[in-house]
Design a protein around this nucleic acid. Structure first.
Length: 256
DNA sequence: ATGACTGAGCATCTCAGA
């Protein structure tokens, strides 16, 4: 089983990239983030023609997530349980396919909107942890993958790529991420590649790609049963060198 | 010393991204 995640930074700008990538890499499930369109504007027909079912959680201009699946999928949630009922940000999708719960997330960045914006990030992380706890209690095999907007350790971003005060690396952010991992989840990349610079994002500015000034912020956290099945995990850096790329690359995870 | 990115949207600037 091959799962993947990709923050595409507008699906309308990246539809062709995604179509070509699906044909080349053939994932069973691809979780998309930052589709930046309303649900009816998502080019579902193009992906369906390639053999993928689409579950889309869109909103105007910002955010937006989608799940593309080759196997039949049941939609479990389109909002993160535990958030206020009036929360309107499209950042969460949970499907069940081939006996696995696959959760796609676009975790808030936390750098905009002042302290309230950062508080929203922390509240979101708290709700995600509660959701993971519930899935563990029900003994459901799952993988939570997506754009976490967290660089977990200093090894996970290039020197100078971010200030130490950035919401992606603040100690409180990292503590919350660790609290999630310490429920008993496995960071797929670090399980198979414990050390070294492995990035999933390079800023458009300051020639970050050319200088390899990147961040590792797109992750897959696996439940114990899925961690046992994990055989491969790697970002697909090739996509960052394409014409008009997203600032994130796809990250691919294989399970026996 | 200078200039230095991308996308969406009631748009020629602002907000957000990270």
């Amino acid at each position: 089983m091959r799962l993947a995640t990709w923050n595409v930074n507008s699906i309308r700008q990246r539809q062709g990239h995604v179509e070509r990538w699906l044909a080349r890499v053939q994932p069973d499930v691809l979780m998309l983030q930052e589709i930046k369109c309303q649900t009816p504007d998502f080019p579902a027909h193009a992906f369906e023609a390639a053999g993928y079912r689409c579950v889309v959680v869109g909103q105007k201009a910002y955010n937006g997530v989608a799940a593309l699946s080759r196997t039949p999928a049941k939609t479990i949630h389109t909002t993160l349980p535990g958030l206020p009922a009036d929360d309107a940000q499209a950042r969460y999708i949970e499907i069940d396919t081939a006996g696995v719960r696959v959760v796609g997330i676009y975790l808030p960045n936390g750098n905009s909107g002042g302290e309230a914006g950062y508080a929203y990030k922390l509240a979101w992380m708290g709700a995600l942890r509660a959701r993971a706890e519930a899935l563990l209690e029900d003994d459901i095999p799952f993988v939570i993958l997506g754009d976490y907007n967290v660089a977990p350790t200093d090894e996970d971003y290039a020197k100078g790529a971010l200030p130490a005060t950035d919401a992606l690396v603040r100690p409180t952010t990292r503590a919350s991420y660790q609290a999630l991992v310490w429920l008993g989840l496995t960071d797929a990349i670090r399980a198979l590649h414990p050390h070294g610079a492995i990035y999933t994002f390079w800023d458009y500015q300051s020639a970050a790609w050319q200088r390899d000034s990147g961040l590792r912020i797109d992750h897959a956290l696996c439940s114990p049963a899925m961690a046992e099945r994990l055989t491969a995990a790697m970002p697909d850096k090739r996509e960052r060198g394409e014409e008009q790329p997203s600032d994130h690359v796809p990250v691919v995870f294989d399970f026996a």
